[in-house]
Design a protein around this nucleic acid. Structure first.
Lengths: 246, 246
DNA sequence: GCAAAAGTGTTACTCGTACACCCATGT
DNA sequence: ACATGGGTGTACGAGTAACACTTTTGC
């Protein structure tokens, strides 16, 4: 019952002086994944503020009270990868009272996926780090990444988002590799390939990838077929499932 | 490239006068579901501010810059249902620039589930409304509810959250009914019941529900068995699946 | 007895899994 | 020739979908 009274008190306060509430700031922070050199990586930004002494953190920025979150994200993206043309979604807000040393700053976490071929190296403060060995990050950023990873893993088994971080023309091995890294499991490549082909999501480009020094049969290139996906979407039953090898 | 420059400018601004950022407010808004009288309902609050003329909206409140989001939610919950002992989760932040008439207020949406038997009617501003016929709500609240519904529907097929809005002792028909309302489909009751019993999630209470005027065989009561669930959890493969009748 | 709702039995079928095997290619 | 990776065939088994059938109860 005490809690209830507290609320009543606050409501009164609210009516008499709403200005008390307008002393918070907010920001966006971005967990941007890519797939490069056989690793899943995220973008980190070296923080130049004196108190951080170059400690890395997620790319992020404060938002002006009259600024749109979307356009803030676009500015941020331009700084990180040179443009804002990639897949991204809001994760959630992180609101711990003491998460920022300069006042109450709640941050809205975003997660994104980008093919490494679309990454422009426009900023030398940005580094790409394997998600398996991340350093200590500033603020509460070490806590945001697991949330992003969970979201990613959840989406990737229900929606065809894996294509958002593969090159436009990919081979099936790359898909399998990405899934194996994400779930830390080995999959039956034969079944996985078959399921991918019959998923109705990809179409062969009609080109064999000719990598040098590759032993064994050369793989065919595929592309994500959005038209096919849209058509399938109606019928539910999208995608595919899989289980790990022993 | 223009976007990139804009960012640089803002960074400078940032360094010189960070106070510009601390003029925003934020709030929590709650989409609380229950199951009552054969309907899925959410709590709405009649807004007494003059400009709303009693228009309903989601229960919500502004948060003080030094106030924890969790404790704000507890106060809010006490106002809505008399306590804060129910299942809830953050949805995401809603940040549109003009969503609040008195300034920049971003709101953090929460969704919750509560059995109607746990709802205390402590506040006559709160009404419970069938989700199928909601009125026009204040602010952007009509846009928050679909997000909550999606989240709920997504969780309910992957996790045993349906029990969070059923009475402690329920009958299988109630589960089926809740699913049918949520997904607007009819399920094969025979198969559904069998799957529920073999899901390892529920245990019979050992009591037959004796409702008056009920035609037909009387159903057995069950309860959610958390111990069984925790045990099952290790082995993955939680819950059950189902498809709709034609 | 009849209707309605709970609950059981049975069968056909789908789909994932495992694994043997074949194909293409570089050294 | 052989190792390596791409790709095909196939058989088993688990689990779902459909539906007929039985049981319990109120009127």
């Amino acid at each position: 019952m005490l809690v209830y009274l507290k609320h009543l008190l606050m409501q009164q306060d609210n009516n008499t002086n709403i200005n008390h509430f307008f002393n918070a700031a907010f920001s966006v922070d971005l967990v941007l994944f890519t797939f490069h050199e056989g690793e899943i990586k995220i973008a980190l930004e070296k923080k130049e503020e004196v108190r951080f002494e170059g400690q890395p953190g997620l790319p992020g920025m404060l938002i002006y009270p009259n600024e749109d979150t979307g356009s803030a994200l676009e500015s941020l993206s331009a700084m990180v990868v040179g443009h804002s043309d990639y897949y991204r979604n809001q994760l959630r807000a992180f609101t711990a009272v003491a998460r920022h040393p300069q006042g109450r700053v709640i941050t809205i976490g975003y997660y994104g996926l980008i093919p490494f071929e679309k990454v422009q190296l426009v900023n030398d403060k940005i580094t790409w780090n394997n998600i398996e060995s991340l350093p200590n990050l500033c603020y509460d950023h070490n806590g945001i990444i697991p949330v992003a990873l969970e979201k990613f893993k959840n989406e990737v088994i229900h929606q065809p988002v894996i294509f958002e971080l593969l090159p436009e023309h990919f081979i099936l091995r790359e898909i399998i590799e990405a899934y194996e890294l994400l779930f830390k499991k080995n999959f039956d490549a034969a079944n996985f390939r078959r399921q991918l082909r019959s998923s109705g999501l990809i179409a062969p480009v009609g080109k064999i990838r000719d990598t040098e020094h590759q032993i064994g049969r050369k793989p065919e290139e595929y592309r994500f077929d959005k038209a096919l996906y849209q058509a399938q979407k109606q019928k539910e039953k999208i995608g595919f499932t899989f289980t790990a090898n022993s």
